[in-house]
Design a protein around this nucleic acid. Structure first.
Lengths: 109, 109
DNA sequence: CTTTTCTATCGTAATATTGCAATATTGAAT
DNA sequence: ATTCAATATTGCAATATTACGATAGAAAAG
């Protein structure tokens, strides 16, 4: 055991969980915020910006990319990573929807 | 190694990461959605609702509570768990803010 | 008081994540 | 072609997560 039983949940639930999981690390939050701040981006900048070794950051970038939170284009021997607005939009929509539902019903606790 | 280096990141970054991480599992997303759907809630219902054993669900509930996503009150030999709107609000605010920033600048990729 | 019923905790096995040193790869510059 | 500069991959150790059987605890029902 130890592996998540994704097959028992809906696609939507897994999709939100995947995005959330990818954002569930402060380094990856910091990377996202940096990408947003500088707009365009080369990975080397991030290495200088964060207190983590280059391989570690590379790995975090890979995870963000796998989750669909960032998109990258090869550009010479560096890479231009950007936030994928669609993923952010999904998250925003999700929490807006939940927020709305919570406001309609008043909670019991 | 293997432990997250939270001390190198800001409190805000860690806070969002903690909330995201807690939501980074489909079972916990399913639990949240169920709590929202039924409004008031007893844990036993969730056990019947989800394809996971009772100790597993109890553990997931504990994690959601630790992250501040749900709040629980003891009620006899059952427990009333509810979504904590404040946590959802934080997430909504965060993604709204990011979304806004992304719309202002046009991405490079 | 005993039983029933529900949730929490413990213990443990399987798996995943985190972080980095070492190394590989890749494109640009000389 | 060789070197340089940047990112990616590999391999590994430390730690965390996931899942659940067994068990404990606590209140309600009998």
């Amino acid at each position: 055991m130890g592996a998540t039983k994704t097959e028992h949940f809906t696609d939507k639930q897994n999709a939100i969980a995947t995005l959330s999981k990818a954002l569930g690390h402060p380094a990856r939050i910091a990377i996202m915020e940096y990408l947003i701040k500088v707009e365009a981006c080369i990975c080397g900048d991030i290495v200088n910006e964060l207190p983590l070794a280059q391989p570690t950051i590379s790995q975090h970038l890979k995870e963000l990319k796998n989750a669909g939170l960032i998109k990258g284009t090869i550009e010479g021997n560096s890479i231009c990573y950007c936030v994928d607005e669609r993923a952010i939009q999904k998250m925003q929509d999700y929490f807006s929807k939940i927020s709305l539902k919570l406001n309609q019903k008043n909670n019991c606790c």
